[in-house]
Design a protein around this nucleic acid. Structure first.
Lengths: 305, 305
DNA sequence: TTGAATTGATAGCTTAAAACTATAGATATG
DNA sequence: CATATCTATAGTTTTAAGCTATCAATTCAA
C-alpha cells in the first residue's frame, strides 16, 4: 500500500519543519531514512514533492495539495485509533438484535430507552423474527444477539432474562372467566386454546400444555401477533394463552377480557439473551443482559401494582 | 505508524469477504500473513475486531465503526494518489508570485485572466515588493517565482518576458514636449528626471541614464508608484521616466502629458520570470513564462494601435 | 461416530523493507 | 577560502512482513 502512512507522516513533518534533518528529528528517525522514504514516495507518486537545496526543503506548489490531503489522512487515522480506544469494554457501536415477536414489542421499547440513557453511543437494530429464523441468522453472523427462549443449542451462550408464566385470557362470558385466582391444569380440559402460528416459539409451549391438560389447540386461527390472539379471545373464539409480560402489560388493560394465571410448573417459558459463544464480547453481552433483566423485572413489578 | 494502511486494507478485505482465506486471496497475500497482521492490529488498537470461528470472520459491533473509518482512509489515500497523477506536468496548485510594482499592476490583471482561462486549477498569489525584497524571499522559499529585471544572480534561472523601452513623460509646456518622435540622449542633458525611490529596480536604470545623458535625478520627490511620478510630471515637477508597458497602457491616456520614447540602447530594461534553479518545476515555469510573454506582447500591440 | 473438508492459528524460515552510521557532495556564509 | 549546513549515497544491520507447512477446532456427511 503505497504511499505508506509513515511516508505521509514524513512528508508532513518536512512541510512543517522545512528541513530534512529537523523533520527526521521530529519523526524520531535518522535524516537518511527520511530522505530515502521521501524519494521513494516521489517515485511512487510520479511527482516531485519538494525542492531540495542549501535552503532546506520547499514543498512544490503542486504538492501543497498532497500535503493537505496527507494531513487529513493522518488525522483520520488518529481518529480511528481514539475511536478504538473509546468503544472498548463498554457498550457502543451498533448491535444487531433479533427478538421473537411475543417479547419484542413489550420489552424492547422500555429496554432501548434505558440503554440509550446509560450508553448514548450504543445503538441496536431490532429484527423481529420467529425463533428458528433468529437462530439461523445468529449462526450466520447476520445477527449479533437474540432474545428468545433458551433451548439448548450448541455453540451459543445464554443468559436468562426472565421466566414468564403463561396466562389464559378469555371473554367475560367464558366458563374460565367465572373463577378466581389461578387456573389449574384440569380447568383447561377440553377447551380450545388460541396460539401463534407454527414456527413461533410460543406455539411449542402451548402444544405441550394442551397435551398435559387435555385441551386442544385451535386450528381455526393461528395468529401472527399476540394482539390478534387477544382480540380473538375477546370475541369469544377461545382461550388465548399469553405470556406474562404481554398478559400483565397489555391484556389486563383490556376490559373485554378476564386474565388468569395458569398454575403449573410447565406453563412457563424462560426468555434468555443468546449469543454465539465464539463472540469476543461476552462481557458486554452480560452487561446488556443484566440491564434487560432489570427492565423486564421492572415492567412486571409495575404491572402488578 | 500503527495501524498500517496495509492492515486497514486487510481489515476491509476481511469485512468484505467474511473469511480470512478469501480476504487474503483478495489482498494477494497468504492467509497466515493476513491473520497475523490482523492480530497485530487488534493488539495495537486494544480491541477485538473480528469474531473468529468455523463460520468465518464476523466484524464485532464495536469494530464496524473502525471498518467504516478504515474505508474512508483508504479511499482518501487513493484520492491523494490520483491528485498526484493529475497535478503533474501541467500548471496547477497555488504558486506564490512576486512582482515589482512597476510591472505588477499593468501586466498581471491580463495575465491572471488568461491563466485562469487556460488552467482553471492553477492559482497564483501575488506579492508586490521591491526587487531586492523579492529576491530575498525567492531564496528563502517564501516565493516560488518572481517577475523582475533579470540581473545576473547566482542560482536562479530566468526567462525573458519582454524588453521595455524607457519613455519620457512631461507636461505639454515642458521643453521636451515640443519635439516629435523619439527623444535622443542629448535632449536629456540638464533635465530633472523623476523616478521611483531607492531600492526600486527602475531607479537603477534611470540613474544610469542620467549619468550617460547629463541629466540629474530629482531628489525633491521619489515616488512609490508610477502613477505618482506621472502626476508629478503632469504638474511640471520634471521629466517622468516610465517603462513602455506603463507608458503605453496608462500614461498615453493622460491628456495632460506628452509621451516620447527615449532613443538609446541603454534606455531599456529586460523583464524576466525568475525562479530558483533548484526548482524541479522548470517545465511548468517555462510554460508559464511563455504565456506571460504572449500577454505582455499583446498588451503592447494593442496600445500601439 | 468417524472421516473428510473447511476454517483460522502457530511455528519456523525467508525475503523485503526500513533504519542506522559514516561519508560524500553541494552551497551559502563569514 | 575555510567552515558550517544542507541533502544524497553507500554499506550494513535490524525489523517487519511474508511464505510454506502444519495444527487444532469444528462442521457436515456418510
Amino acid at each position: 500500500m503505497r504511499p505508506t502512512l509513515k511516508q505521509l507522516q514524513y512528508l508532513v513533518a518536512l512541510a512543517d519543519t522545512g528541513k530534512f534533518g529537523d523533520a527526521a528529528k521530529l519523526s524520531n528517525v535518522s535524516q537518511p531514512s527520511l530522505s530515502t522514504q521521501l524519494a521513494d514516495m516521489e517515485v511512487e507518486l510520479g511527482i516531485t514533492l519538494v525542492e531540495r537545496g542549501r535552503h532546506g526543503a520547499i514543498i512544490t506548489p503542486g504538492a501543497e495539495n498532497i500535503v493537505r490531503k496527507a494531513r487529513l489522512i493522518l488525522s483520520a487515522v488518529e481518529e480511528l485509533k481514539s475511536a478504538a480506544r473509546k468503544g472498548n469494554g463498554i457498550l457502543s457501536g451498533r448491535m444487531r438484535l433479533g427478538v421473537i415477536p411475543s417479547i419484542g414489542p413489550y420489552l424492547l421499547p422500555s429496554a432501548t430507552k434505558r440503554l440509550h440513557e446509560l450508553f448514548p453511543e450504543f445503538r441496536i437494530s431490532i429484527h423481529e423474527e420467529r425463533a428458528v429464523e433468529l437462530e439461523a441468522q445468529l449462526r450466520e453472523g447476520r445477527l449479533d444477539i437474540i432474545i428468545s427462549t433458551a433451548e439448548d443449542h450448541a455453540n451459543v451462550s445464554n443468559f436468562p432474562l426472565i421466566t414468564e408464566e403463561l396466562w389464559v385470557c378469555v371473554a367475560p362470558d367464558h366458563d374460565l372467566a367465572s373463577g378466581k385466582g389461578p387456573v389449574s391444569l384440569g380447568d383447561l380440559e377440553g377447551v380450545s386454546l388460541l396460539s401463534l402460528g407454527k414456527g413461533h416459539n410460543l406455539n411449542f409451549g402451548i402444544r405441550e400444555l394442551a397435551r398435559q391438560s387435555g385441551a386442544f389447540v385451535s386450528h381455526e386461527y393461528e395468529g401472527t401477533s399476540l394482539d390478534a390472539i387477544r382480540q380473538m379471545a375477546a370475541m369469544g373464539a377461545g382461550v388465548a394463552v399469553l405470556p406474562s409480560l404481554y398478559a400483565l402489560v397489555e391484556a389486563r388493560r383490556d376490559e373485554a377480557l378476564v386474565v388468569r394465571k395458569i398454575n403449573h410448573a410447565s406453563a412457563r417459558r424462560e426468555i434468555s439473551l443468546i449469543w454465539r459463544d465464539t463472540s469476543p464480547m461476552r462481557e458486554e453481552m452480560e452487561q446488556l443482559a443484566g440491564i434487560l433483566r432489570e427492565v423486564a423485572e421492572d415492567l412486571v413489578l409495575r404491572a402488578n401494582l
